[in-house]
Design a binder for these strands. Structure first.
Lengths: 213, 213
DNA sequence: CTCTGTGAAACACTTCACAGCG
DNA sequence: CGCTGTGAAGTGTTTCACAGAG
């Protein structure tokens, strides 16, 4: 299950999201999943086949069986601890995002360099000094870091986190982070997204559907 | 230039971002762009070749020539007007994002259904009643909408915008929006991103680099 | 001699079509 | 009979290797 193609991995969360809205005892067809996820049915079947033989021919997939299987495939076993670096507008907005807990992510702390913010609690999450970042990371306080700092310091933060052993980062700063091999960085760049939209806005061609990835 | 592959379009903003940090009179090689953008040099050359013959063999690419060419290819001519729907934590954080103006995007308004917020000004951007959304959209007040509402109403908002003629949306709500053909929606879903990171966290394989897209 | 631009090969991903299980 | 699972075909994307311009 480790040789799952990246394109498939990127779609699994969408299938999971659909399954979350289905009753546990229900049975769903590849067509059902496909319609809800914006892909086509053969694609769904192919994707799921990478995880093994999960469905029943002539019937479909058991939600109660499929859901845990996808979760395990994604490594969503137990709570994953997440830290948010940067307690500005964006960092605080992310701290208030309700989708975390419901999907097994636990936000342990916000980090900020501004002493005036230290000790404050935002959406039940404490703001800590940025100086503690490396120590907390090395101590295993979190596995994933969300970078919501200004672009100027994002690279520095990423390097610090990587040195402290953090393997996964989600970067919101408009900057390319260069990290050692083995560290996963996913960039969410607003400007990039808007510029891509801009391209298809002017066009008369049939663009490919796209993803936040 | 209209048959530019989606994969190439998704990379052009990265090249542009690098060029923005270079002096206007400078010359850059495909290798320079590649290193800064996290791709390899032949890829950069292939991508740029879709826009025409832009470089000088043996020398490289003129920043002053390449930059406007990429911008034109992306449709970044003049100011693009953007509206943000939902003036909650996230909507207000997005309204304060400094990367907009510097890249030719102008945020015209925030829309919210809460009357208590109407008339307020956040980061110089006025908050308007959600009821005005369709009329403003149809009146051409903005070309792109950013959806930062709760998931429950995101679908409704998207349908309303699509009916009013909005062709491009960036969706931050954790929901699949189903829109008519011809409307571009890009989803930025935090849970999805974290779940993908989670997969690679557990893995021992060499994952493909990824993108906010 | 350097660095672009591009055929051609390799690879990855998607779609099709259907055999086969329940 | 319906829907899964999957070979095989088709399409899109990346990489290679090098001809050729400056």
């Amino acid at each position: 299950v480790r040789n799952t193609p990246p394109a498939t991995v990127a779609r699994l969360p969408r299938y999971l999201q659909y399954l979350d809205h289905q009753a546990d005892h229900a049975t769903v067809s590849s067509e059902d999943i496909a319609r809800a996820s914006g892909v086509n049915a053969p694609q769904v079947r192919r994707d799921l086949s990478f995880l093994g033989t999960l469905g029943t021919r002539g019937v479909g997939y058991d939600v109660s069986r499929l859901r845990p299987l996808i979760m395990r495939a994604l490594g969503l076993t137990g709570e994953l601890k997440v830290a948010i670096v940067g307690a500005g507008n964006l960092g605080q907005a992310l701290a208030g995002y309700r989708g975390f807990a419901s999907r097994g992510f636990q936000v342990t702390a916000l980090y900020d360099s501004d002493p005036a913010k230290h000790g404050l609690v935002v959406h039940d999450i404490p703001i800590r000094p940025a100086a503690r970042l490396a120590a907390d990371a090395a101590g295993g306080e979190f596995a994933i870091a969300i970078i919501a700092t200004p672009a100027e310091v994002a690279g520095k933060v990423a390097a610090e986190l990587a040195a402290a052993g953090v393997k996964s980062m989600l970067n919101f700063a408009p900057a390319r982070l260069t990290v050692p091999a083995g560290v996963q960085v996913r960039n969410v760049d607003l400007s990039t997204e808007l510029q891509i939209l801009s391209f298809y806005l002017g066009g008369t061609s049939e663009p490919k559907p796209a993803e936040g990835t």
